[in-house]
Every structure is written in C-alpha cells, then in structure tokens.
Design a protein around this nucleic acid. Structure first.
Lengths: 138, 138
DNA sequence: CGGGATCCATTCCGATACTG
DNA sequence: CAGTATCGGAATGGATCCCG
C-alpha cells in the first residue's frame, strides 16, 4: 500500500532508499536478516582481514588475538554459510585450512568499508556525544 | 608498526581502508564500538524512519508494530546518547515527545543506507548461499 | 593445526504491570 | 501519551578440555 511506503531522500532529492514499514517480518526482512550477522562482534574484523588476501585459520587467530578459537570457528562458518567466504582444506600434515573472500563478499565489502570508514572518522564525535549525554545525567 | 598495518584496496588499487590489527581493544575500537549499537535489532529501522522526518514516540510505535515499548524507549535513548537523534518534549496535555535526526545521524545514514540497499539487493543471493550450505550438510 | 563439545557468565530482549 | 520497573527466557560469547 502506498501510504505505508516511505521514501528516504538525501538533500539532492535523490531517492536513496524505499522502506515499507507495514510488513516487517523478522524472517523476511533483509536488513535485520543480514545485518544481524554482519553486526556480530567479530564479523567485520574478519571480513576486513579477508578483504586483503586469503588467510589460514591460525593466521587469523594471531591477527585478532582476543578472539577465542570457538568464536573464530563459528564466525568463519557463519560467513561461509552466508556466501561471503570460501573455505579450502589442504590435506597437508598437519592439515591447513585457508579462508578467502568470495565475489559476493567483495561486493558486500564495498558499502561496508564506507560505513567502517565513517565509524572511524566519527568515533570522537560519538564519544563526545556519549560523554555529554552521560554528564547531563539523563 | 608498519607490518601490522593492512591496506585494504579495491580493484582499482584505490586504498579504501587501513586497518591496524595489532591493537584492537574493545573499548577503543571504533568499528566494534559504533557498529555494536547500529547492529542492534531495532536501530537501523528507527534510523530509517527518522531519516525521513521527525516522528513522535507513538508514531514510531505504530510504524514498527512488533517492537515492545521497552525496546523502543531504550533504542531511542541509545541513539540519542550516541548523538544520532534529538529528543524534544512538548509540554502539551498529555505530553508529546518528538524525535528527530541530528546532522551526525544524517551523515551516518549516508553510508548506512548504501549498506542497507546492498542487503536488500543481495538478500536472495545470501539466502541461496545459506540453503546450499545447509543442504550440503556441513 | 584446525577444529568439536561442554559448561558457564553476561547481555539482549519480550511480556507485563504500573505511573505522571 | 510516553514512558519506568521488574521478571524471566533466549541468545551471545568466553574458558576449558578433547580429538584426528
């Protein structure tokens, strides 16, 4: 229904998004469905690493020292399930496993990197806003 | 140290991000710090609504019917704390409260909207990847 | 080396009831 | 109308031990 369709525009009046608020079923909402995974604690970090080049399990572990191997395994598995990452096992002795980004993952990383750049560029502004909010004691 | 700095480049060899993996303290990592909030279950939805125009509490509640008033209050409060949203109370009878986006929030919404567009455009691809992964019974 | 299995603490979030 | 307070279940994530 047209009344429930919202056009989100930027300043140049170019439509940037159209969101229908009438039917927001969790199982079928792309935003919640995909962002829930990307928004996990370790997903973006691993996507950033693998956007550079393929890495082995142990290499990723050393690059992100404060991740538990449980979460590394699980996050990589989830990223593979969503089609962002490929896994290849080399039957060496002992075995080694390499993770690399797929084309879908690279296409995701474009807009994602822009958002992460924004986060870094505006981290101070957000922290200042938080401090002000907390000091005003609301 | 230079060895721990990773340049993430796109196909045109333009550096898009530089990530230092050596010091990723949770309290000081902008990505995790900001994305953790944005990645919450309701944040993006409310940012999308308020990117269009200001809304009152009850209007937002009706736009997103499956949110509890507890989470609506809390998410709006968190968005306000991070400086994305402003709250204005009108001392009418009964009182009404309006929420509107700040300039910081609008600047965030630019790259965020691109990511959300990607999520919608590629939802089918991800769902297909999930189905294939699950059927391959890994 | 690259996991899997188990246990446990914390956090998130929904439901419900109450208030100025 | 726009919240606050409390409770409890579910999900998230860390620590530890085991295994081919």
């Amino acid at each position: 229904m047209a009344a429930s369709v919202v056009n989100l525009r930027n300043k140049a009046e170019t439509p940037v998004r159209t969101v229908e608020f009438s039917k927001l079923d969790f199982t079928n909402c792309p935003v919640r469905d995909l962002i829930a995974q990307i928004g996990g604690k370790w997903s973006t970090l691993l996507l950033e690493a693998l956007a550079q080049k393929p890495y082995r399990f142990g290499e990723l572990r050393r690059m992100v020292p404060d991740i538990s191997q449980r979460m590394l395994t699980q996050t990589l598995r989830d990223l593979q399930r969503d089609g962002y990452v490929e896994r290849e096992v080399f039957p060496t002795k002992p075995p080694s496993v390499e993770y690399r980004m797929t084309d879908l993952g690279r296409s995701l990383y474009g807009p994602l990197a822009q958002l992460l750049n924004w986060a870094e560029a505006n981290h101070d502004a957000v922290r200042a806003a938080r401090k002000k909010f907390d000091e005003t004691e609301k």
